[in-house]
Amino acid sequence: MPEDAQYRVYVGAYTGPESAANGIRLAFADAAGRLRCTDTVADTYEPSFLALAPDGATLFAVNEVAHGRVVAFDVRPDGTLAEINSQPTHGSAPCHLSVHPSGRFLLTANYLSGNVVVHPIGEGGVLREACHAVQHSGQGPDKDRQEGPHAHQIVPSPDGRFVLAADLGTDAVYVYAFDADTGHMVLKHEVAWEAGTGPRHLAFHPDGDRGYLVGELTSTITEFEFDPDGGTVRPGRTLPLLPADFAGTSLAAEVVVSPDGRFVFASNRGHDSIAVFSAAGFEPVGIFPAGVRGPRHIALSPQGDVLYAAGELSDTIQAFAVSTTGALTPITDPASSPTPVCLLPV
């Protein structure tokens, strides 16, 4: 890394004909959180979501295409990436992936086909053929967005005993018991959200027994209780992500929780803002301008003192200092990066 760099930020992007992006880029953050974006470090098509292995040696990306694929990259000492191999996701338009805490399995959500899939990870980060897949079914009241299942996220519980999948199309969160020896999932609970919510992403609190889910279609956030023993999810209070007087069109996108567990952040595309909540009592802190257009993804620095917003529509990334009250203050002008849609601080 450059001498003044404190950590790396990998940038996933859409790479279609209307974008100048051609793969995964690498940025370096200094002590204040200011980003310096460098060149593409991996040529790959539509790497719209990224995840890192627990040991930091392998980075995984989706190829969000009709015949979806997942790709494994070796992380070199200088931060550049070398492709190891790829595998089909047995679904269409994979939009999210995560790595099981054991480091032995990659979990992927296929948006258009509405299914989730598990790939074993071999020695050296090599992706093996998929060992298990589950097809969701159902629909919601929104005829344009919920005509069928649309798996939008799949994440392991903090201890890895369960896997949770948020499905925008069926207004449900599916909780699977996960076999860490075989990679197989067994459905334990199908948790219904209010019709038309469009569950998009969820994030666990560091205490492991609660979390937060954003509804893309209603621009809301719901706190839920989680039982680490039985995998039970109990939705609790739901709060709006937008000001009461906002009359335009906006879609909720990402949700993250600070490493110290004090704050919850969620992004709005359309209103182009970031809503902040105190985890203590689940109370609003404020709604802050995102400084970018279309903040599809937000991410926190490793220490949680800087928040980054990826502006898909403005080709920029904005860095914010996170105050002790949770308030967001822009650190500097946005950094340029074409069509950024996923940020992975390392």
Rank of each mutant, 00 (worst) to 15 (best):
A66K: 12
D30C: 12
A57P: 00
N63K: 09
G91S: 01
A82Q: 11
A72Y: 00
P47D: 12
I24K: 08
F60T: 03
C95P: 02
Y45H: 12
A51T: 10
E83C: 08
E46L: 07
H67V: 06
A72E: 04
V71W: 01
Y14S: 02
T44Q: 09
I84D: 00
V70M: 09
F49N: 13
H67L: 11
P94I: 14
D74A: 14
A42C: 11
F49M: 10
D74E: 15
Y14C: 04
L50I: 08
Y10S: 15
T58K: 08
G12R: 01
S48A: 09
G33E: 14
A42I: 13
F60V: 03
T40A: 04
G56M: 07
L50E: 06
V70Q: 08
L81S: 00
S19A: 07
V11I: 15
A57S: 15
Q87M: 13
S86I: 00
S19N: 05
L97Y: 02
A93R: 06
I84L: 14
T40R: 00
N85K: 10
A57E: 12
V70L: 11
G12V: 08
A31Q: 14
S48Y: 03
Y14P: 01
P17S: 13
G56F: 03
S86R: 12
T89R: 04
G56V: 06
A29N: 12
S19Y: 02
L81Q: 05
P17T: 12
A72C: 06
V41S: 03
A93N: 02
H96K: 07
A29W: 08
R69G: 04
G23F: 02
Y45A: 15
T80C: 01
H90F: 13
D30Q: 11
A53D: 13
A72H: 04
P94N: 09
A29T: 10
G79V: 03
L50V: 09
R69H: 08
L59K: 09
F60N: 03
R25D: 06
D55W: 04
A72K: 00
R34P: 02
Y14A: 02
E18V: 07
F73Y: 11
V71K: 05
A21W: 01
D55E: 14
L50W: 05
L59D: 09
G91I: 03
G68Q: 08
P94G: 06
S19M: 06
V65W: 02
G16S: 07
L81R: 10
Y10P: 15
V11E: 01
R76V: 00
L35F: 04
F28V: 06
S19C: 02
F73H: 13
C37W: 05
P77Y: 07
G16C: 00
Y10V: 15
V41H: 08
F60M: 06
N85C: 07
D30E: 11
A13Y: 01
A53V: 04
A72D: 02
L35Y: 03
T80P: 02
A82P: 00
P54D: 10
A21Y: 05
P47Y: 14
Q87P: 03
N22P: 00
A57H: 09
T58A: 15
V70R: 06
H96I: 10
G91F: 02
G91T: 05
R25Y: 14
